[in-house]
Design a protein around this nucleic acid. Structure first.
Length: 310
DNA sequence: AAGAACATCAACCGCTCCAAA
DNA sequence: CTTTGGAGCGGTTGATGTTCT
């Protein structure tokens, strides 16, 4: 197949000089790149065509955005990597103005390490650790969020938004066909929100890349009990919708936050405590009954004991 | 202050794909 | 159908910069 550049004698290698860059840019702007193999001779460059193509596509092209990756871009990379693996060029098509090489480098030097640090396998995008470990709350939160992100692009999303109400009557407690951990997942997430106070809420802001200065008193969830409804022996958990204009005003955000919060909801519902049914508490999940939920409600009224539920 | 260790990222290499002959 | 070679992709390298000891 194509000859290796190593066979092409007398051609320069290594970093490009400003002069070489100028020659390359000037030629392409005037003639287009045409055949890359023929380009260096026409442009007066002592480089192989491949080197020219790389320099142009990864560095000199005018439609390239350089510099720090935004949070949104990071999220996109993580999601797409979960879906596509190391197919950098495919990933790059979803990140306007970023090159596959840049994304690959960023993944290898930043994102991969970060995921590993969080206990997430950067290849499988799955948690390497049990949920109920000594991980800090925020590490668990990030872990869950990233897992949810990965899952989002792997398959169909579960219905989830802030209008959604999670309803558990007495019968479903022993119905294995239902997503049993769902309710507890939300509670667990809640625990994070309510106990972590403003510092963690500030942290949540970074999900949205927007200013989200929320006083704890603005959050209905400060007392989780306020967001619980009990009727006919069942417990409904009601979360505020960011799609509600009033909520948006309160939070000082709009538009794209909604998507982010759908994300969070997915994290809440599916990943924060994804193996909750295997964990032991009060005799196990299948054994719980309405009294169990009554106990939870009692505990929810006292945030200091809330954490002991899990 | 200096050297070592680590991090970053531009650039290269080798491979595959695919269109054209 | 087979061969050829250009283009592009992903893994890796190595020069350079930064941080640590």
């Amino acid at each position: 197949m194509g000859r290796s550049p190593s066979f092409e004698k007398g051609l320069k290698k290594g970093p490009w000089t400003t002069e070489e860059d100028q020659k390359l840019v000037a030629y392409i702007e005037e003639h287009g790149h045409g055949s890359w193999r023929a380009l260096p001779i026409k442009a007066g460059l002592q480089r192989c065509g491949k080197s020219c193509r790389l320099r142009w596509t990864n560095y000199l092209r005018p439609d390239i955005k350089r510099g720090k990756f935004s949070l949104q871009e990071e999220q996109t990379i993580i999601q797409l990597h979960a879906l596509l693996g190391n197919r950098w060029s495919a990933i790059a098509t979803h990140l306007p103005k970023r090159t596959d090489n840049e994304i690959k480098n960023y993944w290898n030097t930043h994102l991969k390490k970060r995921l590993t640090k969080m206990g997430i396998d950067p290849i499988t995008h799955k948690s390497r650790t049990a949920v109920n470990t000594n991980l800090s709350h925020m590490t668990q939160w990030e872990n869950a969020r990233l897992e949810a992100e990965a899952r989002l692009v792997r398959g169909p999303r579960v219905a989830s938004n802030f209008y959604q109400r999670f309803h558990y009557g007495s019968a479903p407690f022993i119905n294995k066909s239902l997503p049993q951990p769902l309710c507890l997942d939300v509670l667990k997430a809640w625990q994070g929100i309510t106990l972590s106070k403003l510092s963690d809420l500030t942290r949540l802001e970074t999900f949205n890349n927007q200013t989200l200065a929320v006083e704890p008193s603005d959050m209905k969830t400060e007392n989780p009990k306020n967001n619980l409804e009990i009727s006919n022996g069942s417990v409904n958990i009601v979360l505020e919708s960011p799609k509600d204009e009033g909520v948006q005003n309160t939070l000082g955000v709009a538009g794209d936050m909604i998507y982010q919060d759908d994300y969070l909801m997915d994290a809440f519902t599916n990943h924060l405590v994804n193996d909750v049914s295997n964990r032991s508490f009060d005799g196990g999940f299948e054994d719980v009954d309405n009294n169990y939920w009554s106990n939870i409600l009692d505990k929810l009224g006292n945030s200091s004991s809330f954490s002991s539920i899990f």
